[in-house]
Simulated scan of single mutants.
Amino acid sequence: MTNSNNGVNVLVTGGSGFIAVHCIIKLLEQGYKVRATLRSLNRQNEVKDMLKKGGISLFENLSFIEADLSKDENWDKAVQGCSYVLHVASPTPIVNYKHEDEMINPAKDGVLRVLRAARAAGVKRVVLTSAYGAVGMGNTNRTTPYTEKDWSNLKGNLHPYQKSKTIAEKAAWEFIHNEGGGLELSTVNPVAVMGPVLGTDYSHSNQVVRRMLEGEIKACPKVYCCYVDVRDVADLHLLAMTHPKANGERFLATTGNALSMLDIAQILKKNLGEVAAKVPTKEMPNWIVRIAAKFNPSLRMLATLLGKYAETSGDKAKQLLNWSPRSNEDAIMATADSMLQLGLIKK
């Protein structure tokens, strides 16, 4: 434990989320005092159970406060006395949305609510959990890896969830530039997040592994994606929080090499043997996915990604912050192994 961090308060928003819980683990291990927001304090014990599975046994440096990104109440109390804020909370993709604003407005308004409260409380730096969805979506004819200099094309073919991440991050940078009043900002933009699942609240990226192991996916859509381990995402949040060179910077959290969904299936087959008996071995033609997406709202976002170039570069975080992520295979297998251990895979 790093004693120099004793008494340094950090607010983590959305404390029950997959990335947030891993951030809390890293912070507590390094001696920080953590205050976590929850929309309902009824989830305190659930979060503590996940933290215990992640190796935390003492909770004297952890407290909770009820706060909702869609309301002003309690945000002034939440940030009071905090040196840093990890703004991890974000609305998850809505399957049956009627209008894209159902995702865009809560994401944008929530970011600005947290930034205003942080500025008023004299917080030193906010780290915003953005996404690859704000970097590499809606573009065509791409042939070189996406970097932090890239932004998603809001006029292109992208899902409202990806649009919401882009608009929310742009709003954050605009706020800092125009009315930040000395408040510092860094963003972490993770690609698809895998890694150890600690409870039933985990990232939608992990659902792919669960659905493959349960035999729900009969053939793999031709979708390419980069992956990253949630533990490495948490490490990058802490580096972005304290490193002098991180102020005013975006960081892609990525191992850098894209995998197809069939690649994931083959990793599971290779490592799990008979346990992966239901994992698919073939790819599905794009036209089938596109037709299915017209009738199944849960496939809409997937359909916008078919055949798209998805290579990314994690060089900036590695070179500037000395960040060192695990491999794709390690991250994917950590997801599978933890789900099996927790009994989350239906036989």
Rank of each mutant, 00 (worst) to 15 (best):
L41G: 13
I65R: 00
G55A: 04
K124R: 12
D72L: 05
N42F: 09
V34E: 14
K124C: 09
M103R: 03
A121L: 06
P93Y: 04
P91G: 03
D109E: 12
E73M: 05
I94Q: 07
D72H: 07
D49A: 08
K71P: 00
F59S: 09
A120M: 08
L86R: 14
A120E: 13
I56F: 01
N45M: 03
A107K: 07
R113K: 12
P91F: 02
A67W: 00
S57M: 05
N74W: 01
V95S: 12
R125E: 15
R125K: 15
I56M: 09
S57D: 09
K71M: 02
R35A: 07
L115R: 12
G122H: 01
C82E: 14
F64P: 03
A67H: 06
Y97D: 07
K52G: 00
G110M: 01
Y84P: 13
V111K: 00
A36C: 07
N105C: 01
D68R: 02
G55Y: 01
E46H: 08
G81H: 14
I104Q: 08
D101N: 08
K71Q: 10
V47F: 03
E60F: 04
C82Y: 12
K48F: 03
H99Q: 14
C82G: 15
A120D: 15
V79A: 09
N96I: 07
E100K: 13
V34M: 05
S70G: 04
T92I: 00
K48Y: 06
L69S: 02
K48T: 05
A36K: 05
P93R: 06
E73Q: 12
F59G: 11
L112D: 13
T92M: 03
Y84N: 14
A121W: 07
I65S: 00
L38V: 06
